[in-house]
């Protein structure tokens, strides 16, 4: 584990009517993509804004780049880049102008080449001279990331960078964040998209009601809470389920499909062989690896759709 860029201990943010952050603890190492994952209102943005120096914590300790967030936020903001939640650019500035402007607010004298390079990094070269109000949602977020990168930050905060974007734009931003990760950037990413966290994060903290309910790498969380691999007997129906139960195999009926959970990876092949020996009418058989969604469902007790917990 490398040097800790963020250290959070017993962090609390309390309002008169709600405790938004309730005693959370985590560390983020240099070069890591750390994801705070959870539904809307879980406390993700409050946590990030405390770390950015935009909110004062009620209790606990948080250090960013070695600085206490209460006393050192001026020094912190010189070394971090921020893409806030629901980022909107200045409508009547072009990306080239916005990046130059932002660099100067960090006291950086950026050359035209440097600005062009940042814009190229986020894939906006073709739109560099278009007014921001005419950019698409995905392009606006890219511009936001470009602005966050101008100060050559040691740490990048991306607060729900893909919320509200169409799937294509989301994938494009994933590629961009993946590229930044490859270049060794430390990134704190908040999201309510489980696949996004699974795809991009080295480390995930699942938040709910202001608390961290699970913390670890996506694979470790899946392995610990996800239930391993599921073998799906498509079209096996109730008859198939009963046939498996009669042979002592635990099976779940989901619609017309039958699910067989295999907790350990090494047990998948013997189980497949066992199932093949049973005469069951079916249309298809395939395996499904557990995902963070399964982990989330198990830990929180509900699925999440666009950041909202399903009933």
């Amino acid at each position: 584990m490398g040097e800790h860029v963020i250290e959070v201990r017993g962090l609390v943010k309390r309002y008169p009517d709600i405790t938004a952050v309730d005693g959370i603890e985590f560390d983020v190492s240099r070069g890591q993509v750390f994801s705070l994952l959870g539904p809307n209102g879980a406390g993700k943005t409050t946590t990030v804004e405390i770390l950015e120096g935009l909110r004062d914590p009620t209790a606990g300790e948080a250090r960013v780049l070695g600085q206490d967030v209460r006393s050192g936020y001026r020094r912190i903001r010189e070394r971090v880049g921020v893409l806030p939640q629901d980022f909107e650019p200045f409508d009547r500035l072009r990306p080239r102008e916005a990046v130059t402007y932002w660099a100067r607010l960090f006291d950086h004298d950026v050359s035209e080449e440097a600005v062009a390079s940042i814009i190229e990094t986020v894939g906006l070269s073709d739109r560099a001279d278009t007014f921001a109000l005419n950019l698409s949602g995905g392009e606006k977020r890219r511009l936001g990331i470009a602005m966050a990168l101008v100060g050559q930050p040691d740490l990048l905060f991306l607060d729900e960078p893909t919320t509200g974007l169409d799937p294509g734009a989301r994938r494009e931003l994933w590629t961009l964040i993946g590229d930044l990760k490859k270049k060794g950037r430390t990134i704190l990413l908040t999201t309510h998209y489980l696949d996004e966290a699974e795809q991009l994060a080295d480390d995930v903290a699942i938040m709910n009601h202001g608390k961290i309910v699970a913390h670890g790498s996506p694979s470790a969380l899946i392995s610990q809470f996800g239930g391993g691999t599921t073998i799906v007997l498509a079209g096996a129906g109730r008859g198939g389920s009963q046939a498996l139960t009669a042979r002592g195999i635990a099976a779940e009926l989901h619609g017309d499909d039958v699910f067989v959970h295999v907790p350990m990876a090494g047990q998948v092949r013997p189980m497949l062989a066992k199932l093949a020996s049973i005469e069951i009418p079916l249309t298809e058989i395939y395996t499904k690896r557990s995902t963070l969604e399964d982990v989330f469902l198990k830990l929180v007790g509900a699925r999440m759709e666009e950041g909202v917990l399903a009933a």
Binding site: R74, V80, V82, P84
Partner: peptide, 13 residues
């Protein structure tokens, strides 16, 4: 309303 103040607060301005 457009959170530009928050955005500016993340700079040295």
């Amino acid at each position: 309303t457009r959170r530009f103040f928050k955005l500016l607060a993340t700079t040295k301005l």
